[in-house]
């Protein structure tokens, strides 16, 4: 009788841990989707900025082509359930952000471009989108922390191992990217 009760309690506990893990994994995937929604906005906005910039920055072929290249890589499909592919996807988007910051820094050297009404509005929209990406990144990282704790701490780590649930990578911004860009450092 006691053995049956003990088995019953164990089964219930395992089931609760299983539910929690699945919820955390789904929560992280949801947070990843919300990042993708915001990254897609940036992805769609970049060509508009490039079109305006090209008119004034003919001699900055390297800067412009880097943005185009990173946009193409960051927009590739990936498997959301595969942490390595997620990490590559996030890294590619970090590189795109970096290329865009470089573009805006170089654009400082072109007063005609800076004063263009369309460029001013495009830059404002870009800043707004970056704000949303940053917010989505914080939501994602918060979800990743919860999942990582559950996957690495006993006893849920055993269930996670059995189910093949892995921790997802953080979406971090490098320290150098947090700092305001100085045009003189780049030129």
């Amino acid at each position: 009788m006691y053995i049956l009760i003990a088995l019953g309690v164990t089964a219930v506990m395992i089931y609760i841990l299983y539910i929690r893990l699945i919820k955390l994994r789904n929560g992280t995937l949801e947070a990843l989707s919300s990042i993708d929604v915001q990254l897609k906005k940036r992805h769609d906005l970049v060509p508009n900025i490039l079109t305006i910039a090209k008119k004034f920055m003919e001699h900055e072929e390297g800067v412009l082509s880097k943005v185009t290249q990173m946009r193409s890589i960051s927009g590739s499909d990936y498997d959301k359930n595969n942490p390595e592919e997620v990490a590559q996807h996030l890294e590619a988007n970090k590189q795109l952000q970096s290329a865009m910051m470089n573009l805006f820094a170089v654009a400082e050297n072109y007063p005609d471009l800076k004063s263009q009404e369309t460029m001013v509005r495009a830059q404002e929209t870009y800043e707004e989108v970056e704000g949303h990406i940053s917010a989505a990144r914080r939501f994602y990282n918060s979800s990743v922390t919860d999942l990582k704790n559950a996957v690495e701490i006993l006893p849920s780590s055993i269930i996670a191992n059995m189910l093949g649930i892995k921790a997802m990578p953080f979406f971090e911004i490098d320290e150098i990217e947090r700092k305001p860009v100085s045009a003189s450092d780049i030129l």
């Binding site: 919300s34 915001q38 704000g131 949303h132 940053s134 917010a135 914080r138 939501f139 918060s142």
Partner: peptide, 27 residues
Amino acid sequence: VKLEDPEFERKFEVHSNDQVEARYLLT
């Protein structure tokens, strides 16, 4: 909504119908 700042978390509770938007507002 769970935010990163421990002092803010100690003093306030945040609820939202949009997790991303809440963080967009509460930078």
